[in-house]
Design a protein around this nucleic acid. Structure first.
Lengths: 207, 207
DNA sequence: CGAGAGCGAGAACGCTCGTTCTCACGATGT
DNA sequence: ACATCGTGAGAACGAGCGTTCTCGCTCTCG
């Protein structure tokens, strides 16, 4: 077995197990069993468990953001739709049977207090994610604060969906994001005065 | 030393340590050293570490919500102010030097996958917190969905403040909550049409 | 053909940590 | 005063786990 393939199998097994059970609850022997890679090779490729954890998190970071960006690029046309498509992607994610919250929030809660590396990867991931949302919001004509606030909605939806066990938070977050976005960009697009009736139209517009 | 005092000292030490470093990273001997209670007594009062963890979480649950409710009751007058006062309380919390995110999100991320008890306490805490926010929102004349959405903002602010290390998310969340609340309740209070100028007035209103 | 290097499988080592046991001591009740 | 019981301090036990080592085997290269 080539080193590249072994590396991939190890990271696949590590991702499944670390994400499902937590990092400290998964021993290296379990990863050996799940990956089919011998312990000797495992330590050749990742000299310590900390290295494996870091590789797991950085790979998940790039893949997660890539998957989100791909969905946004393919499933939406207008800038507003692109921003709101984030929440559809989140809802699909929340509904997956193995969904267990944000891996970076989880690992930060577990090891952020003792491992600066884990804390740094989590911070980097959230920075990148929030910057991406701010970018989408800016492209949709919203103010910088609106992008930040929509990021908070996405963040809250993730933890709420994880702990409650239902994907419903994604719809609520999308609805709120749409309200914030419409309220912010309305004076740019259409300066039409908003009466009680259009309030109701706004509220109904979620997904 | 009476059992009640020992119990309190143990829980105080456990809360400090579990919250700061994570649960699995803190051994029973460390809690013995920090509390000054002998290991024998510790196991008399909490037959296993799991029992201690559960007691830590349930005590923190009630205290946290009590502290929040006290602030809301004393620092705000109108129903709208009461709801928004939640975010001022969050900001104060985020700015404390030992702030390390939501203890329930952290423990859920660390042990939720392997300990049903920890998952249940976290779920209960979030249920209660969100129900409280929905209650405040309803008292302020908002729709049920608005309360849920404001809960997502609070949730997102907690994790963002924890990982970023700054309390700024509280202000952003408050601003967004105020927008959602005003948008939702405006047709009840004043049916005044909203023009570009009042948009700006709304936006400036945060804290 | 033979020596040596790399590899797979799993045992072994050392440390941590949850939990229990030992043992000497002091308080208490008769 | 003496037997008894609970207590404090810390050692001890046993399991789990990160990491390394051993031992055959195989493949390669001179």
């Amino acid at each position: 077995m080539h080193a590249d393939l072994a590396r991939e199998r190890i990271l696949d097994a590590a991702e499944d197990l670390f994400y499902a059970r937590g990092i400290q609850a998964v021993g290296m022997d379990v990863i050996r069993d799940a990956s089919g890679v011998t312990l000797r090779r495992l330590y050749q490729l990742f000299p310590s468990k900390g290295d494996l954890v870091e590789a797991y998190l950085t790979r998940r970071d790039t893949r997660w953001l890539q998957s989100l960006a791909t969905h946004v690029d393919t499933a939406a046309e207008t800038p507003q739709e692109r921003l709101l498509a984030v929440f559809d992607w989140l809802e699909d994610w929340f509904a997956q049977p193995d969904f267990h919250g944000c891996a970076f929030v989880n690992s930060f809660g577990e090891l952020g207090g003792t491992s600066p590396q884990v804390a740094a990867v989590a911070r980097h991931h959230k920075d990148t994610f929030h910057a991406y949302l701010r970018e989408l919001a800016a492209a949709a004509g919203a103010a910088a604060d609106t992008g930040t606030q929509i990021a908070l909605l996405a963040e809250g939806a993730m933890t709420t969906a994880a702990i409650s066990g239902t994907p419903a938070a994604a719809r609520q977050a999308k609805q709120a994001a749409q309200l914030l976005l419409t309220l912010d960009t309305r004076h740019v697009n259409t300066d039409l005065p908003l009466a009680a009736g259009s309030d109701r139209r706004l509220r109904r517009a979620g997904r």
